[in-house]
Nucleic acid binder design. Structure first.
Lengths: 342, 342
DNA sequence: AATAGTTTTGCAAATGTTTTCATTTTTGAC
DNA sequence: GTCAAAAATGAAAACATTTGCAAAACTATT
């Protein structure tokens, strides 16, 4: 405790302090069963005295795993990705790894650059969101044979293992639900679809389910709006200020649905009596929302945990990442959707 | 493109392929102005051909910065920390660093272990949330003279530089606002205070402001409840089912306030006509909430960005972290608070 | 007390870079 | 075409570890 030498505290200093060789110190960390209990004790004491902390960088250049996993998400300040990141991080930590996190703000070129950077840091594995990535990103991961998973979305013919839900199916479920309630005048409120395969698939699913019931989405009722409560609120107010308006609004995710409902409440309209509004995602908060939001559950926590498991599994076994997992979306009917009547 | 050798692609392979020495390759990366344009071209081409990616681990053991900053938060799936993490991460990336992220779930021993792990990874700096940390954690950071900042909370006598708001003041602001509206029967709804200095300070601030107006918080109206909409909703329903109930509820954060309001709505009570409800935080969504939530803004994005700036600044200048920043909380009066009348 | 076997330890090479210093090459002036 | 100065390159040491192999230190058996 006295002075513990600001100078250096490398394995050699420890070795000296414990009067053994560096090799023995190293072994005492990595293969404790190979060193005598007594020596180990001396070493531990020296470690404590010097405040020595192992240097993973130095280990890593011996081909030893870095113990880090790269996770790149579009953004974390959407509830949904926050939940995903949290569960992924929990699972990964549990298994002894640490995550290197970055966000690309829906810019796939940036995603490529970040991926590169993570490879420079010698992460042991990578996780990305969605299936749509630049050619370069895919190429890089393949060329470096980096164990990788795609989270969020599931598709049989994705270039990499994916763990996620079927967003098309999610769209289909909600579309069928709304059409099944007798609604024929349906608006949609989605985030920008370009470069966002999740949203695109959901939209396609909605449209198909609607078409199957003979319902067509009017072009001027198909809104694209930034991913925020405020934007959705504004969009919905524009919608209802027109002389005729739909009887239901299918939103691309719960955040937009919240915004839509707030917008209606503010204008004295009641959900679901005047309009049916639905979300997709079942974000934290949608259940407690008043009235409880009808939506499709995409189990973020489960996806994060399972994705983490898959990637770690591949890393420690040194085998290719196993086949992915389809985590089925589930229709959750609460209080914001009701049968159409006039 | 042909076969780019799965074998290895280290700097030596590149050197061979480009018919120069490894030193030149290294220089071409780190001090390009010292190598002839022509040679640089040859090297770049070899790099591309072999798919070479620099190994930061190998650089790091030369005392070169790792380019990573450790960020440990209690959890990221609370809106508020998500916002903070996002802005911190944005700023840090902007400046060329990458974050190593971990969550401790409000367990300070775990926080210590995670800090250690990050030091093993040779992060260049550390950021933690709040001022309350274990002795060991503080000791470790000091002993390794690791540049560190404490985010979220500001206090003059914290052991490390902090960038954050004054949570006591935040509590005071909202307490004074509610008392000023004439409320005398005030309930509080807070997350568990133990091991959470932010919540504790807010509570103290509320109590002081109330006391200053001669208002005392009844013990059976001071609720502690887990940090979730659902829990708050349940707590509030218990509160109003009693024969007498307060005229206002001061919540420790916006999430609890949302829950409280939902609980009241569900039971046919109106906010603010029947009860005044307030939050603290001004989370994303509180503005658009219907009715707009009266709260105290704690500018998470600003804290994250400024904290990142401080730490990076210290890292690149190799000086101690500069003095912290107090980012003042601000009362935001919206629609959930109203003058008491009976 | 000698031997064989086992356990524990140390030596030295290896890992992928960077950097200092020395050497070679180029440039420009005469 | 020579020479000095400047620019570009290379050789080797250094960084903090791990590990294969050999040496040393114990144990147990006779």
């Amino acid at each position: 405790m006295s002075d513990n030498m600001r100078k250096k505290a490398d394995i050699i200093a420890v070795a000296k302090a414990a009067r053994v060789s560096p090799s023995t110190v190293s072994r005492s960390f990595n293969h404790p069963e190979l060193v005598k209990a007594n020596t180990r004790k001396k070493i531990d004491s020296a470690v404590r005295r010097l405040g020595y902390i192992r240097n993973r960088a130095a280990q890593t250049i011996h081909g030893i795993r870095s113990g880090t996993i790269g996770l790149i998400v579009p953004t974390i300040d959407h509830t949904i990705f926050a939940e995903l990141v949290q569960s992924f991080s929990d699972a990964v930590e549990e298994l002894g790894f640490t995550i290197l996190l970055a966000t690309h703000g829906y810019n796939l070129d940036r995603e490529y650059a970040l991926t590169r950077k993570m490879l420079e840091h010698r992460v042991d594995g990578m996780a990305l969101i969605g299936i749509e990535h630049s050619e370069d990103t895919y190429g890089l991961l393949a060329q470096q044979s980096m164990p990788s998973v795609l989270l969020w979305n599931y598709s049989d013919d994705a270039p990499l293992t994916c763990v996620g839900s079927d967003n098309f199916e999610a769209g289909r479920l909600i579309g069928a639900h709304v059409a099944g309630l007798g609604h024929r005048d349906v608006a949609t409120l989605f985030p920008p679809l370009a470069g966002n395969d999740r949203a695109q698939l959901r939209f396609d699913g909605v449209r198909q389910a609607l078409n199957a019931e003979g319902v067509r989405i009017r072009e001027d009722w198909a809104f694209e709006t930034p991913y925020s409560v405020a934007a959705a609120k504004k969009a919905i107010e524009a919608l209802i200020s027109a002389q005729e308006h739909p009887t239901s609004v299918i939103c691309g995710n719960d955040v937009l649905a919240w915004g839509a409902i707030y917008g209606l409440m503010k204008n004295g309209l009641s959900v679901p009596d005047d309009l049916t509004v639905t979300g997709i995602g079942d974000f934290k908060g949608s259940k407690e929302f008043e009235p409880g939001l009808t939506t499709v559950r995409i189990p973020a926590r489960q996806i994060g945990a399972q994705g983490a498991k898959r990637i770690v599994e591949a890393i420690v076994s040194d085998m290719p990442v196993a086949a992915g997992d389809l985590i089925a979306p589930e229709l959750i009917v609460r209080a914001t959707s009701a049968r159409f009547r006039r």
